[in-house]
């Protein structure tokens, strides 16, 4: 009983900020108050009409779409190569491709900033997109690798024994069976890219900045609940995505939490 209460309390701790943000977002006054003195959607209106948020939202869509479109085929090819081919230095390549997971954001951001400055590419979407591709790739590769590892190579052998040449084997057997992994990879790519902040802060300008960077700037400069409204929209979208993902992909399998029953 006590144990259950502790777990509930801890989960409440995890959820508390979310609840507060949602409550704050419908607060009618500029000064935050609890309990709220009424209900108002004015901060949503302000958030949706604030020019810098609109520009940043467009940038987010461009950067996320472009980086997902690039990272998915690159990551799939890399995952297939890493799992299937007896590459020399396989450990090295895996480490290189997965390294963005462990490199601190400020180090990666500053490194990319210096590099972009050298190449004269500052204030360019290309740098931001390249940065996002690099950051998203580990997630794509991991999720596709899981699918590749679960793919019974006998199915591909069977197709070959029935006369399918390699490209046909890939088209008719490999690709359709990797579809769930590719879908998960796409989902991860979008979530990571949409939420990416630290590296983007370093390599974007007022013109190219994406939503999290614009939100950061807003929080630093203003205290009104507009940010709460934007955050609520963000949280809502995330909840929908995570719920859908759990239904479609059974997240506990993705995170290797098995049950003995």
């Amino acid at each position: 009983m006590i144990a259950r209460a502790v777990v509930v309390l801890l989960l409440a701790f995890m959820t508390l900020p979310t609840v507060v943000v949602v409550v704050a977002s419908v607060n009618p006054t500029e000064m935050l108050a609890f309990p709220p003195s009424g209900f108002s959607l004015r901060w949503y209106e302000h958030a949706l009409t604030y020019p810098q948020f609109r520009r940043a939202a467009v940038n987010s869509v461009i950067v996320t779409a472009a980086s997902a479109a690039l990272a998915l085929p690159i990551g799939t090819a890399a995952a297939l190569a890493l799992v299937r081919h007896p590459l020399r230095l396989r450990g090295f390549w895996t480490a290189v491709l997965l390294s963005p997971l462990v490199v601190p954001g400020v180090a990666a951001g500053l490194g990319l900033l210096i590099l972009a400055a050298r190449l004269g590419l500052l204030a360019n979407h290309a740098v931001l997109i390249a940065a996002h591709v690099i950051l998203v790739l580990p997630f794509v590769i991991r999720s596709v690798m899981v699918s590749v590892a679960n793919l019974d190579p006998m199915l591909e052998r069977a197709a070959a024994s029935l006369g399918a040449r390699p490209w046909r084997v890939f088209r008719m057997v490999t690709l359709p069976l990797l579809r769930p992994g590719l879908f998960a990879a796409l989902l991860f790519a979008i979530i990571v890219s949409v939420n990416e902040f630290v590296v983007s802060l370093f390599v974007s300008t007022r013109v190219t900045e994406i939503l999290p960077v614009a939100m950061f700037t807003y929080v630093v400069n203003y205290t009104d609940p507009t940010m709460a409204a934007v955050s609520t929209l963000f949280i809502g979208a995330t909840f929908v995505v995570v719920f859908a993902a759990d239904r479609l992909l059974h997240l506990s399998r993705v995170f290797q939490i098995d049950t003995h029953r």
Binding site: M14, L16, P17, T18, A24, A228, V242
Partner: peptide, 29 residues
Amino acid sequence: ILVLTLAPFFTGAIVRTYAWMLVLGQSFI
């Protein structure tokens, strides 16, 4: 539990941190 655990994981750093600014500030609590 999994969804409650993962949701902040996917919400992004800025939103989460902003939320804590609201919680830790003196206006709510």
